[in-house]
Amino acid sequence: MTELSMMAKSEWETSELAFFHLSLQQIAPYLNSEGQTIHREIIKEIENRGGIKVI
């Protein structure tokens, strides 16, 4: 996560977005404001890409 946090969300692989979205979603009630901001950025990037296609 440290390495990815230094990159723009637009540069993340779809699999990375999906993994961290799921992980953060599961602990959402316990996230501090920084964690909530990161989660919102991930959701925004997923939406910008048209969602995640499940095969």
Rank of each mutant, 00 (worst) to 15 (best):
I46P: 01
E11C: 06
E45L: 04
I46N: 02
L31N: 10
S5M: 14
E13Q: 04
T2E: 12
G35W: 06
M1E: 14
Q25E: 14
I52V: 05
I27T: 01
E13H: 08
I55P: 12
E13S: 13
Q26A: 06
A8Y: 13
S5K: 15
A8C: 12
G50T: 10
Q25N: 08
S15C: 11
E34A: 14
N48H: 15
E45Q: 15
N32D: 15
T37Y: 03
M6Y: 09
F19W: 03
R40G: 06
S33I: 05
L31A: 02
Q36C: 07
I42S: 10
T14F: 01
G35Q: 00
I27M: 10
E47A: 01
H39V: 08
M7D: 06
E41Q: 04
E16Y: 03
A8H: 13
I27N: 03
S23I: 08
M6F: 05
E47Q: 02
A28M: 13
S33Y: 10
E45Y: 09
E11A: 01
E47I: 00
A18I: 08
M7S: 05
F19P: 05
S15T: 14
H39R: 14
M7E: 06
I43E: 03
N48P: 00
A18Q: 13
E41L: 00
P29L: 08
T14R: 07
H39D: 04
L31G: 02
T14D: 14
A8M: 13
E16I: 01
E3N: 13
G35M: 03
E41M: 04
R49K: 04
I55E: 11
I38L: 14
I38G: 10
I46M: 05
G50Q: 13
S5L: 15
I52T: 03
L31E: 02
A8K: 15
K53W: 03
